[in-house]
Amino acid sequence: MIIADRKSLEEILDMIKDFKKILLVGCKGCVTVCNVGGEKEVGVLAVILKIARKKEGNPIEIDEKTLERQCDPEYVEQIRDIFDQYDAVLSMACGVGPQFLSEAYPSQRFFPAVDTKFFGGAVQHGIWEERCAGCGTCVIHHYDGLCPIARCSKSLQHGPCGGSADGKCEIAKDVECIWDTIVKKKMEQGRLEDLRTIRAPKDWQTARDGGPRKSIREELVQ
């Protein structure tokens, strides 16, 4: 899923400083699962913002609404009747949500309350880690189900590099060197020779590097 973190209170307060009445919109998709932008977090942020603004002597009115998904035009319609009753709309969805809202309601102003970080999952309660870079051409089968594109700092197809030490990456002592893990797994399974293949330079056209992407499924297009 998409993992996001809430922006700092200071940043959010600065974005909405000129508004007296806003709609705070959550999303029941990924950001609910990663506990950053669901119904509960919308409620908490609304309270915090109202208290902060009251303290500043500049009270704000905030209504709350959490959509099934902000990345789906069908659910984006759920605020059709109310969107123009506000000075602005603050979205707690990933970066996709406020853009779908902006496109559906061009006369309104939309602000992001979260920073969208990566595609990943929870490794323990409260900790999420990146697993996929969305490069558009999955190669994890070459690496026993571990993705060096997303998980190696240098996205190396052939590793590890000289910065790998004691299973850690040179960028920080708490960052796993995924190439160390890949090599160990291959050794354990007696398939180290798999890594002797020199792979062709990666085709980055299918990743973000090839420009904005689109996925079309003919059978579903009406």
Partner: peptide, 13 residues
């Protein structure tokens, strides 16, 4: 120009 226009289409800009 975008690499897609050149002779190394697969590269990252």
């Amino acid at each position: 120009e975008d690499p897609g226009l050149g002779d190394h289409h697969q590269t990252k800009a």
